[in-house]
Design a protein around this nucleic acid. Structure first.
Lengths: 195, 195
DNA sequence: TTAAAAATTAAATCTGGATTCAATAAAATG
DNA sequence: CATTTTATTGAATCCAGATTTAATTTTTAA
């Protein structure tokens, strides 16, 4: 790879990181090309040298975080050895950490229709489906195991995901509970659903 | 009240209902003054004779539905006689019905910062808090009753609300499950959390 | 060193609605 | 009926950002 290509990629990455930061601060709609550029001491015009348009950049950000989350879950799902319950717990923990630490970018609550074009939307939905599926897998495994006793794994999965995503609507790091507290408590109550 | 005032109120109400419909079809951002007016064979200009601006109209809509939901819950909370569990179940049922039937207007997932001004935002947040509080009350009642055995009622409430609100992200009336099915299943699993 | 390629810039333009407004039309009122 | 009040209209304006562009600067590489 030529030097110039490397530089291009590096710059793209810097912009991506800047965008991630701004999105986490202002949300997808609040993030302006202006502010993303200013963060790197550039002018908004030059962002278009690296990204086709705003929705392209937003998409890359969402994708970036979501893909990492998927990787993290897959790693656990494939390599962790414990019971289905233990693996699921680990997955919940990871999900909650993303939901809290990457509040806005990892925002599975936001309506992707608002920020992405048709093509991107399709990919995002596919990725979200894939993400959900990892939870589905472990739930099914637990049922087959006889660890979990539930008749509607899909609904249970949705209940769990909804409960977890909601954390970003109310959690305040300055509040009574630390992130770790919240995770512990969520784990306790969410796992009850499966019994 | 003068006739003209009555007419004014009636027209306002018509616009409100038109807006409710359009919002449920297109979401808050997708709803344009144009389309809301067209629905009543008016031009967008005249909407401003009745409402200060779009965010005013959107706010009235959100408020309208949320207030009705609160009334419904209050009625049950105050007059229903059964156990805390029974009352809570009834409340969950109502919540899910709003979340499904008024998918977009009764959208507690959407970020109110995006659509309302500061003053409206404050009122909306207050109303949401009030709504949440009704669930809090019954949970506390159940704990005091010894019906529920949980140490973190606030978190449990958030878990329940998140799970319920999420229904509007995935539920499809054309799918395998009827609204009634979903409610039944949700009830079963959500109530487990409290045991 | 120098020509080509890559990167940046500031300013102009575009955009999709919301919002305003002056001119009418319709309705109420006395 | 005449006048005032209420309601509606279409066209003009505004607006916040996104996007484009042509000109300029910087970097690369022979």
């Amino acid at each position: 790879m030529k030097l110039s290509e490397k530089k291009l990629l590096k710059k793209k990455e810097q912009i991506l990181f800047s965008a991630l930061e701004i999105i986490n601060k202002r949300g997808y709609s609040g993030a302006t090309m202006e502010e993303i550029a200013a963060d790197l001491f550039m002018t908004k015009g030059s962002l278009y040298y690296y990204f086709k348009n705003k929705s392209d950049l937003m998409y890359q950000c969402h994708n970036f975080v979501l893909s990492h989350a998927i990787e993290d879950l897959e790693a656990i799902l494939q390599h962790e050895k414990g019971s289905a319950a233990d693996i699921l717990k680990k997955m919940i923990e990871i999900h909650l950490e993303y939901a809290i630490d990457e509040k806005e970018v990892f925002n599975l609550i936001m309506d992707p229709k608002l920020y992405f074009n048709e093509e991107q939307l399709e990919l995002v939905l596919k990725l979200r489906k894939k993400y959900e599926n990892l939870f589905h897998e472990i739930i099914i495994r637990g049922i087959q195991n006889k660890e979990f006793h539930i008749a509607e794994p899909s609904i249970v999965r949705m209940i769990m995901l909804g409960a977890m995503n909601w954390v970003q609507q109310w959690y305040n790091p300055e509040g009574r509970l630390s992130k770790e507290d919240v995770i512990t408590i969520y784990l306790e109550y969410i796992m009850k659903i499966l019994m």
